[in-house]
């Protein structure tokens, strides 16, 4: 099992974590900086191009990228031996680096939870991927939007923590 914590394996996992993270946060920012602000400018007859084609495809890569970013990140923290101390925000190890990366890990975990258990179920309702009464769709869309915005807000301190500390 020693090869799992070999320096090259640690690097590879970090690279996979970054690749997944780019896919995840890139699509999160696409939704918040591009898609949501411009939907109102699209004529109604053209809206299905976004709602029925682009958004479902983007949401597929978005939610799986979120899951894999968390998976690779947790593996990385385990490889480097600080998963417990970081999740305890460094209070067990009295280590500021563990606290810093721990904040980032918790923000990331909250964000991934929002993706899978709030944004995705509500987007399925809003986009008509699951059957709900028509009057339930605006509320579902609003909930998905606000949690997407919450994740955009958290992506600022999350990314700060992730790149602030480099523990090898």
């Amino acid at each position: 099992m020693g090869f799992l914590t070999d320096p090259y394996a640690v690097f590879l996992v970090r690279w996979f974590h970054v690749l997944s993270g780019i896919m995840w946060i890139g699509l999160l920012w696409y939704f918040n900086f591009v898609q949501i602000p411009n939907m109102a400018k699209i004529p109604d007859e053209q809206k299905p191009a976004i709602g029925k084609v682009i958004a479902p495809a983007a949401l597929f890569w978005f939610r799986w990228a979120a899951a894999f970013t968390i998976l690779w990140g947790l593996i990385q923290a385990w490889q480097l031996g600080y998963i417990g101390d970081a999740l305890a925000l460094g209070l067990t190890s009295k280590n500021a680096a563990h606290m810093s990366i721990g904040f980032g890990m918790w923000f990331g975990l909250i964000m991934a939870f929002n993706v899978w258990f709030v944004i995705w179920p509500n987007q399925q309702k809003a986009l008509g991927l699951v059957e709900v009464p028509a009057e339930a769709k605006p509320a579902a869309a609003r909930t998905a939007m606000l949690f997407s915005r919450t994740n955009t807000m958290l992506s600022v301190p999350m990314s700060y923590s992730m790149v602030a500390v480099h523990i090898t």
Partner: peptide, 30 residues
């Protein structure tokens, strides 16, 4: 009152504010 997260600009400003508080907590806790 309007939810601040409805504005993208306020969303980013809140994110920066959380970042500053977090950085100060990390710097001065230990």
């Amino acid at each position: 009152m309007k939810n601040p997260l409805e504005s993208l600009q306020n969303t980013i400003l809140l994110g920066i504010a959380i970042t500053i508080v977090m950085a100060l907590v990390v710097k001065y806790t230990f």
